[in-house]
Each structure stands twice: as structure tokens, then as C-alpha cells.
């Protein structure tokens, strides 16, 4: 279930090895899973893996690569860029022989457009930054330090910024200010309303919801022409 993939886009030494969680039985449909980012990645991790387990039971392979700078990656997060992650997503798709993509929340910003697939509750770059900046100003206020969103945005653009413990470099920060998910040909959006219940990214603590995971996996399976279970 735990594999690795080589990211050839890494300039340092030609390629970098990253971890990968996969349900890989060599079946015809192979879904590349691009997870939610940063704090949401933690909150949605169990949900994401549960969706993959259910896809596995429905006869669908799924593969969840670590992007450089995330989880066990040796690359530092602060040196990552949006373009670098987009290249990494394409490289990962090639490396695992993906036929489809499931992009979750901000993961939709990276969905390779040549793959058919689904954007689940896609989040734009500005929405992502707004939430993280707000978390930082609230924490600062609690600590008795006055910080404004405006000043933090300026710092982020020039030097990068640590928000909620996540160190985002200046290039990534600037790119996120205008980044919108692009729904490629053969890709469709799945809104939270189609899943039912509140999105797990809102939760104060990481949680799971078997019913929500089941509905997302079922929607994917059905859109591939499999009968409803």
C-alpha cells in the first residue's frame, strides 16, 4: 500500500523520491488522487484514504502521491511553487499510469488537464490564502500582537509567510493570489451539497465520515458507468 514515486522535475540531483499511498491491483481505471492542502490535508486525510478504500472495493485503483515539500518529502515546503507542484502532479500521473484524477479542495489547482476526472469541493487560491491569513491574525491578536491582513499579504508576496505553521514561499504566495481551479475537458465538479453533510475541512479537529466517503466514491464509480450499489 505504501510505494514511492520519482519526481523528475526536482532540479536537485535530477529527481527526488516521494512516498505514495496506493490501492494498486493493476486494474484498467487508475485514479490519481490530489489531496487537500496544509491544515485541510490533515483534516481530510482519513476521509481521502477511506474514499480510496471504497474505490478499491468498487474495482478502481487509486494512487495518492506526496507532493514535494509535503509529509515525508525531503524537500522544504517553503521552496515549493505552484508551477513546481503542477509539474509534479503531471509527473506523478505519468509515473503511476493514471487514467483519471480526483482533486480535492485546493488539489484542484493542480489537476492535470489531460486527465478526465473530478474536482471535489474545489478551493481557489484566494480562498485558501484568506483562511490562512485570518488564522494568523487571530492567533497574533490572542498573543497581543497587532497584525493586519494587508501587511501580511505584502510580506507574503515579498518574503513568503508562515501561516498556521505552514511556511509558504513568496513565489507560491503570489501565484495563489490569482490561482483558480480549471476544469479540464472530461473533468466535472462535485460540490459538497452532492455529498451531504458539512465538509470535513471545517472541523476544528481531523475527523472522518464513512457516509460522506461512501457517497463520493459512489458518485465516482457511477460516473465511470458502474451501477449504483
Amino acid at each position: 500500500m505504501i510505494f514511492t514515486w520519482n519526481n523528475p522535475a526536482e532540479s536537485n540531483g535530477g529527481w527526488a523520491e516521494e512516498l505514495l499511498v496506493g490501492f494498486d491491483r493493476g486494474r484498467p481505471v487508475r485514479v490519481l488522487v490530489l489531496p487537500a492542502w496544509f491544515d485541510e490535508a490533515n483534516k481530510l486525510r482519513r476521509f481521502t484514504i477511506e474514499v480510496m478504500r471504497r474505490l478499491d472495493r468498487a474495482g478502481i485503483d487509486s494512487l495518492l502521491p506526496d507532493l514535494p515539500g509535503c509529509n515525508e518529502s525531503l524537500s522544504p515546503l517553503k521552496s515549493q511553487t505552484l508551477e513546481g507542484w503542477r509539474s509534479a502532479a503531471v509527473a506523478a500521473a505519468d509515473a503511476v499510469g493514471a487514467t483519471h484524477v480526483l482533486a480535492i479542495r485546493a488539489g484542484a489547482l493542480l489537476a492535470p488537464e489531460h486527465l478526465p476526472g473530478w474536482h471535489y469541493a474545489a478551493q481557489s487560491g484566494p480562498q485558501l490564502l484568506r483562511g490562512m491569513i485570518r488564522a494568523r491574525t487571530i492567533a497574533a491578536r490572542e498573543a497581543g500582537v497587532a497584525e493586519t491582513s494587508e501587511a501580511l499579504m505584502a510580506t507574503g508576496r515579498a518574503e513568503g509567510l508562515v501561516m498556521g505553521g505552514w511556511h509558504i514561499g513568496p513565489a507560491m504566495f503570489r501565484a495563489l493570489e490569482t490561482a483558480e481551479p480549471a476544469v479540464g475537458p472530461g473533468q466535472s465538479e462535485i460540490a459538497q451539497t452532492a455529498i451531504g453533510g458539512p465538509g470535513l475541512w471545517m472541523r476544528a479537529e481531523p475527523d472522518e465520515d464513512a457516509e460522506q466517503a461512501g457517497r463520493l466514491a459512489a458518485l465516482i464509480s457511477q460516473s465511470l458507468g458502474n451501477p449504483a450499489q
Binding site: 484568506r130 483562511g131 485570518r134 488564522a135 494568523r136 492567533a139 498556521g164 472541523r203 476544528a204
Partner: peptide, 11 residues
């Protein structure tokens, strides 16, 4: 209910 959760709540 930490700062990140409050930020999510306000959004």
C-alpha cells in the same frame, strides 16, 4: 477551537 478553526468558522 484554535485559530485555524476559528478562521474556518468566520469564513
Amino acid at each position: 477551537l484554535d485559530s485555524m478553526a476559528v478562521a474556518g468558522l468566520l469564513t
